[in-house]
Structures are given as C-alpha cells and as structure tokens.
Design a protein around this nucleic acid. Structure first.
Length: 487
DNA sequence: CTATGGCACGGATT
DNA sequence: AATCCGTGCCATAG
C-alpha cells in the first residue's frame, strides 16, 4: 500500500540515498560508530558539533538525554512509550549486565541458560582437585552480574585455610573459562586476561597491554589524546589500540553472550559472541502500568551535520579541487540524511514493537506474541526487506537486564516453548510428547506431536523415558490446571 | 505396541 | 530466491 504519505521529508530521494540507508540499517551501533568515525576523519565536509536535538520536538538538548518538554507532553502511558536516542559512547561507559539469571526476579528468569556460575563450574570442574572444587564454588558464588569477583582472593584463602597461591591458581583457571576473563577483580584484569588468551592466536597491537593498564577510562574514544600522551605514541596508533580493544575484548565478561556458546573455544577468540545493546528498554516507574523507556543507541545523532563553512568555501574553491570537494559535500549530506532515515526507521520500529510486545518485555518469554517482520513492515509502511535489515544483528537490553537479539521479538514459537518447559517442570509424572501436545492444545496452542518433540530438543529437554523424575519439593500436588476448556 | 528421532516436503518468512 | 519451520510418514528403540 503506497497510498499513505505521512513523512514526505524523509522519503528516500535517490537510489544512492536508498542504497546507503539500507546499508546503514544493517549496521550495529558499534559498526555504525566506526563508519561515522572513519568518514568524519576523511571527509572535511562533515562536522561533529556538540548539539543534540530532540527527535520529536527538535529542541536543542544539552545532556543528550530525555527532552523535558516531550517527556511531559507525550511520554506516558503503557502504549505511549518514551523513545529517545542516546549516544553510543555513553553506553560504553555504563557497565552492562549479563543475560544470566543470577538474581533476576523469578517471573522473569533467563530461560534457556544455566546460571553463569554453573556454566563455569562445568568447564573448570574436571580440571580441579576435589578439594579445590568447593573453593571454586566459593569463588563462583562471589561473582557479580558483570562477571567480576566481589571479594578478595585473600579472604577466600583464609576462609579455606589454604595458601593464597592455590586460590589464585583456581581463579586463573576460571578466568580462562568461557566467558574469558570472568572472575577477574575488575574490567582491567578481565581485559588483560582476554588479551593474553587472544595473543595466542592473533597479533595484538603493541602497547595494548600498557593501554589497558593505564586505565579503562582512557580507552573511550573521548580520551584518545590523553592516552596517546600517556603511552608516548601518536594519536593514530592510540586509536588503533582502542579500536582493537573495543572490537575484540569485553570489559564486562559476564555480559550477555549468545550464539555458539558451545565452543568455549580457545580458538576464534574474536568470534563476536558478545553483544553490545543497540537498544535499552527500561521501565519508567515500578508501577504495573509504567510506560516503557526505550533508549536507542545512536552514535552522534543530531550532532552530525554538514559543515557550513565548508559549503561556503566551496564557492571559492580552486578549480582543481572543486570537483573533489563537491563530491565530499554530497557524500556528507547523503550520510547525514541516511543516518536520519535510519534513526527514524528504528525509532518507529521500536515504538510499535515495544507496545506490541509489552507483556513479553515486562513479564517474560511466555508472553511473547508471535509477530512476523512482514506484519510489522506493512504496518509501518516500509518494505519487508527494510524491516529485516533493521532487525538483523541488533541487540536489545530488557528491563530485567537480559540482553537478547532483537530478532527474538519475532520468534514464532518462543511462547509455546516456554509454556512447554513450565509444563514439564511442573509435571507430576513424566509426560509423553503426545500427552503434552494434548495439554497444549487445551491451552490454545494447537501443535502436532512431532512439533512438541522439536521444541523439546530445542530447549534441550530429554525425552520422557530418560527424564526420570527430578523431585520437586514444591508444587507436587496433582493440581490439574484445569484451564476451563470451554469447548 | 508406544514413544521418538530422522528425513523430507510444502508453505510461510525473510 | 533462499531459508526456516511445522508436520507427516516411517524406521527404530524400548
């Protein structure tokens, strides 16, 4: 349906515009950040000014945060989420949290993963003396959501009456388990361990270690000059180091990782299993009907523009440069436009998505509604391929601090799988697949027996005959959840 | 005979 | 056009 025309000023004008918008859409904040940075360095027509405009009312903001005017007027109800853009660099500084279920509220637990400590223990367990295991357990229980050790090794040593070196040996082992660097005292140590592991397979820039030692505050793109001075190297080299570090290392090892978490591999350390949130969703208040706050990471949005001085200078450009400059100017304009287009798309996407999947966001996997990208695409009046690009590879942090792929919002069967899992957890006797199928049907999910089997295997649940009763002390009454099958 | 996993097909999604 | 997903059919294990 091409009839609706609500946003004339943002419609792609040229094929180039279209192409680049598409390309940008696919990028993660981090990737986009890199691209913009590179362009900024290369193209003199592009300018970064310290000004940030509210995407809705276009007033200039100074804190790169919520626009007070808009918050008051439009922010507000459950179906009126507060959506705003935030600088990606600010994200980097904020500690981000893991997707593990450590201390999440019960109704919102991370479903398909064991807890981080258990995960690690499984890896290091075999390498440990029996006596050392409980020390390891002790250490693991003291790991916080970022993957850091919250107590001193010495305390542990004293508690168990063992030499400090022994504790340190165990910690060392833990640090080298996946996620690498977990169990370190802080970001600095975590980075160092990761660097060490990585160095076995990858060339690392010189002085990277020193750079880390200098302090992670200096690793932000903001502090390049300072870092360069500290290390006595040119800024360009410092930049390379910072780039390498942010590309390959993760200061918060406990942070989400998904994907092939199977190979706790010593190999392929640069496999991008760590994900930086492109969008952060949180609740405005603790109330039940709180509006959701959606924070979208957008590098430089609003503060990137075409340099007006450059435009002027173009008038008096020397002939031989004129063409080149003209090109730069066009590219700069294009980039800015495309960036706006990208932002606009993502904002609208999140706006509707957050409303539609509100229950999922707040109350967990069981409440995910199966939405297809195509549905949403035509609701937003964009091409479905555009949707696909916008969704792909992005990461979202939910209010419960889980970081999940944006594509999970479009999972067709997650809700059923979750129900299925609950069903099995609460089963009084081992249910067979066909029985489960019937139960699910009763609950309004018509699934074939065969499909139940598939879901089981996806969730890593064993078949009925191998699933010998794990005693559940709670909830053992055969209370049939008669879901009043009004048939 | 029942419960499951494998293979493969068709329709939906991307 | 390429992939993913739910299902049916069949072989196999228990």
């Amino acid at each position: 349906m091409l009839l609706q025309n609500q946003r004339p000023q943002l419609r792609p004008q040229t094929t180039a515009h279209l192409a680049q918008t598409m390309a940008l859409l696919e990028l993660t904040v981090e990737e986009l950040h890199q691209k913009v940075e590179a362009e900024l360095a290369r193209n003199p027509a592009l300018e970064l000014i310290d000004e940030f405009r509210c995407p809705t009312c276009h007033k200039i903001l100074h804190n790169k945060q919520l626009c007070p005017t808009c918050t008051n007027t439009m922010g507000g109800s459950p179906d009126q989420p507060i959506v705003y853009l935030s600088s990606h660099e600010d994200f980097f500084v904020k500690p981000r949290i893991s997707s593990y279920s450590n201390d999440l509220p019960d109704d919102n637990f991370a479903p398909d993963r064991e807890t981080l400590p258990a995960y690690i223990l499984r890896q290091v367990g075999p390498d440990l003396h029996v006596d050392d295991r409980q020390i390891a357990v002790h250490i693991l229980t003291a790991i916080d959501e970022d993957g850091f050790l919250t107590i001193k090794p010495l305390e542990i040593a004293l508690y168990h009456h063992v030499p400090l070196s022994r504790v340190e040996k165990i910690i060392h082992l833990i640090q080298h388990a996946d996620p690498i660097g977990v169990g370190s005292a802080g970001p600095k140590d975590a980075l160092l361990v990761q660097l060490e592991v990585l160095s076995e397979h990858l060339a690392i820039p010189h002085l990277a270690e020193k750079a880390i030692l200098a302090g992670i505050e200096l690793l932000s793109p903001h502090h390049l000059p300072e870092l360069a001075r500290h290390l006595n190297i040119p800024a360009s080299q410092a930049k390379e180091i910072v780039r390498f570090i942010s590309d390959n290392l993760n200061p918060f090892p406990g942070r989400a990782h998904w994907g092939d978490q199977t190979n706790a591999g010593s190999s392929e350390g640069q496999e991008n299993t760590y994900h930086f949130p492109d969008v952060i969703i949180s609740r405005a208040t603790e109330e039940e009907n709180t509006p959701l706050v959606v924070e979208i990471a957008m590098p430089f949005y609003g503060s990137l523009r075409v340099n007006p001085l450059f435009r002027e200078a173009l008038q008096e450009a020397p002939i031989e440069k004129s063409e080149l400059w003209q090109e730069d100017l066009e590219q700069a304009t294009l980039l800015v436009k495309c960036l706006q287009q990208r932002n606009h798309t993502i904002v609208r996407l999140m706006q509707t998505l957050v409303v539609k999947q509100r229950d999922f966001i707040l109350y967990g996997d069981a409440y995910l509604k199966p939405i297809t990208r195509a549905d949403l695409a035509d609701e937003l009046e964009v091409h479905e391929s555009t949707m696909s690009r916008a969704v792909s590879d992005k990461a979202v942090q939910l209010p419960n601090r889980r970081i999940i792929p944006l594509s999970m919002f479009f999972d067709r069967s997650l809700h059923i799988r979750t129900v299925l899992k609950q069903l099995i957890e609460q089963e009084t006797y081992t249910l067979s697949d066909s029985q489960i199928a019937v139960l699910l049907l009763g609950m309004g999910f018509p699934v074939a027996r065969r499909t139940v089997a598939k879901y089981r295997s996806i969730e890593g649940i064993l078949p009925a005959h191998l699933r010998n009763r794990s005693y559940k002390p709670h909830l053992m009454l055969p209370q049939h959840n008669e879901q009043s099958v009004a048939v």
